[in-house]
Amino acid sequence: MRYKITHSTSYSYDAEVEGCYERACLRPRDTGTQQVLEFSITASPAVGYVETHTDVYGNYSTYLELPGGTQQIEVVSTSVVDVWGAGDDPLTATVAQAAALSDRLDPRELADFTSQSRLVRFSGGLRAYSAPVLAPDRPLAEALEELLANIHRDFDYRKGVTGVGTSVEQVLSCKEGVCQDFAHLFVGACRMAGLAARYVSGYLETDPPPGRAKLRGADATHAWASVWTGERWLDLDPTNNKNADERHITLAWGRDFDDVSPLRGIVMTEAKHSQLKVAVDVEAV
């Protein structure tokens, strides 16, 4: 599939902005299942300074300076990406075998993706929830499938309950959240079982409700998990209880949301309030 993705983030303030610094993780990376054909980033007010590097995980990371003098800031990125689905070679390993095979990874990846991170902490609650499912001698495929299904069954998708700093422990207790929370939960469960798992930030192409035309900006940023099977990284989407496929477009991956937040900024302003609006369009072209 070829997609054109338009991702706009706008903030409005109740006072003038003197200046603004942004860190963007908005340029999709090339992976085994996708290739990026075009990318651009623009802003209003016009970008004063921009610089991009690749981070320790190989993601594109962009530094932006925007001048002040307005009460509104908007950052728009546009990407054209070819995505093809991963082959589904059957998984033969057990959970324990896959965990043992994580020594095939670079030691740095192994350490980062099997350890706790700020937003993915180990806890008794997480162990109680996930250990029976990810028992060492269970076949990996079956165990992961059940974990996906359980999360889908036990947690309600609801916006506004959780935020960018919500911990796995909080999600476990409130039983609701958004894709980012479920991805953290899934990643944490895998890591506690000794599996290497990473957090993936990206987009998902969505269908309009039956019989209705697709609305502009109706898509959203998305997040899911990627687990090391001993042979390869397998992307799983706990929010939708399925494997990631050619409708999932990868932006970046890391230990958790903090490593790959799509856009974060420091805004110099006397304003007391700001209003955020994110609009994403994933358009098949």
Binding site: E18, L263, R264, G265, I266, M268, T269, A271
Partner: peptide, 10 residues
Amino acid sequence: RQAPRMQEVS
């Protein structure tokens, strides 16, 4: 002084 800093994450 410079204006205070507001942190934004999305």
